[in-house]
Design a protein around this nucleic acid. Structure first.
Lengths: 127, 127
DNA sequence: TGTTGGTTCTTACTATTAGTGAGTATAGGG
DNA sequence: CCCTATACTCACTAATAGTAAGAACCAACA
């Protein structure tokens, strides 16, 4: 909270998603990946275990859930706490950064769910 | 426009993204696809031609841009107007539904760009 | 009069990623 | 003693993303 050495140089590094080489692209991809969105949404309701997330999120495989969680953890959006017990127990929760991220994706997700009927009307019905 | 047979049954079909088979999953994937996000963001500033979008969005190939635009059009989020001239000219813009969708993804995108420095600090620097 | 460039795509091919099914270690319950 | 549950990983296949080239057409330029 006190005086920091280089507050400006840090502040100036805002990402630019339009630039192909900007690392923000990677963050975008993990936050907006199919399973990433659903994990963030699920963790909005509090801490969950691996298997709870798996049951809650219809259609995730264990492999994809595991990789999605690892990626979100690498970006500091979720916190992983593993208890060395048998059978294994691991708890996942949102970090403060993750709480903000989850608000955005959940807002979008909610909009999709609400507007789904209208969106589907624009789609040509398949033969 | 007159009295419709089943207005309630349509209204009641709110999507559920947690369900694997719900069509909202497909909408989520097109809205949150890497190029989908960047297209929606770009079109927030108004109508653009294909090649303008291609130049603006760093790293898109023509194939991916074309497919992304088609998918967003299928979901009623963008409008495509092709003029039968030579050389070809096509204009893309947001539909009212697309304007709302774009607001959500742009909000998220902005958050990512602003918080990128903090997010990157959580990442282990690579060897 | 070639030839180059610009436009909006599509097609064929390759690389990357997603998804599937099985395996692992351990303990508690029937 | 075998089955289930947990949180994974590994080997494999299917799907998707990315690359490079071409197509159709004309305008401008040398």
């Amino acid at each position: 909270m006190s005086h920091q050495p280089e507050p400006l140089s840090t502040k100036l590094q805002r990402g630019n998603l339009m630039a192909a080489a900007c690392p923000s692209r990677e963050v975008l991809r993990s936050m907006t990946s199919q399973w990433g969105v659903l994990v963030l949404m699920s963790l909005q309701q509090g801490t969950h275990r691996f298997s709870e997330l798996r049951r809650r999120i219809g259609g995730v495989s264990e492999r994809m859930l595991s990789e999605t969680l690892k990626r979100l953890e690498r970006h500091g959006l979720i916190l992983r706490v593993a208890y060395p017990v048998v059978p294994p127990q691991t708890e996942y929760s949102l970090t403060p950064l993750g709480v903000e991220a989850a608000r955005h994706v959940a807002g979008m997700a909610d909009w999709i769910e609400v507007n789904l009927p209208e969106i589907l009307q624009h789609r040509p019905q398949q033969a």
